[in-house]
Design a protein around this nucleic acid. Structure first.
Lengths: 143, 143
DNA sequence: GTTGCTTTTGAAAATCACTTTCATTTATTG
DNA sequence: CAATAAATGAAAGTGATTTTCAAAAGCAAC
């Protein structure tokens, strides 16, 4: 599955006439080896540990490419930081976000999705994408 | 209902030992007379029309107070601008956001809320608040 | 209403998360 | 290997929001 994403990104690069560079490889490896929802800052710091002179801008640019290529997805939890999650083809999930420790749990719920479609339809709306986040306290922080 | 909010804010001010100022009155009036989802920029410009020397910072600070007092709620639709909506005690609504014209439609759906609770419970999560936004094309923009 | 103390205000500077610029370096292609 | 086009890193630039700070305005007790 990591291989599949690497291939997907390589294909994207070739198809767009872009270049395959050492930085892009390094960033991709680091991204794929990271938690499912990583902020740019976090990824940048992780990268700097091994690659002391990789540029901030390069990380930003590369993550945008990941999103474009479909292997990552931008998400924002309202804390002012953009995060990137590993995107899996055609899949979408929603999030439970712990406001205490920052833990993020993913979930999917068919019924909710269906109801969303109904709501949209009743307003003549065509849904392109959606965002559902439940903010609260996770089981560990509740204690 | 506007009176209720004015009172609620006055009460908040007193209870917190803050001061009632001309600016806060003006901003509150302007906010209450505005569309349900107004950006800070929009509100600021509206205010400047009548109060040429009100400060940007004051508007920001005051809107934060509104949110704290419960008469307004911060929302972000991912366009990089914070908006404030009129908050009604204990009520929460979700949004349909047209990605073409920016129109925002509010909706509420009991069943979705109930399902959210179930999802949360199954993860031992305690929901404090949530955010559901459906992005897409509104009926007018579809044509 | 005047005094004294605290909060608020506005303007400008600072911050924060990105984005752009640009000279230099690096891939790819002939 | 040269030519060319894209990518990189450092630094400057953005845009939204915050902070700073001196001056102004509320509020309470005289």
């Amino acid at each position: 599955m990591k291989q599949a994403k690497k291939k997907a990104f390589r294909d994207f690069i070739t198809q767009k006439g872009l270049k395959s560079t050492r930085q892009r490889d390094v960033i991709l490896d680091c991204f794929l080896a990271s938690a499912r929802h990583i902020s740019i800052e976090e990824l940048y710091l992780k990268l700097r540990a091994k690659n002391p002179n990789i540029g901030y801008a390069t990380v930003y640019r590369t993550l945008k490419l990941f999103a474009e290529s479909g292997i990552a997805r931008e998400i924002q939890f309202g804390d002012g930081q953009t995060r990137y999650e590993h995107a899996t083809e055609g899949e979408h999930h929603d999030h439970l976000v712990c406001t205490r420790c920052g833990k993020i749990i993913e979930f999917e719920n068919e019924t909710i999705e269906k109801l969303q479609e109904e709501v949209a339809k009743s307003h003549g709306f065509l849904i392109e994408n959606h965002k559902l986040e439940l903010y609260g306290v996770c089981s560990l922080c509740k204690k």
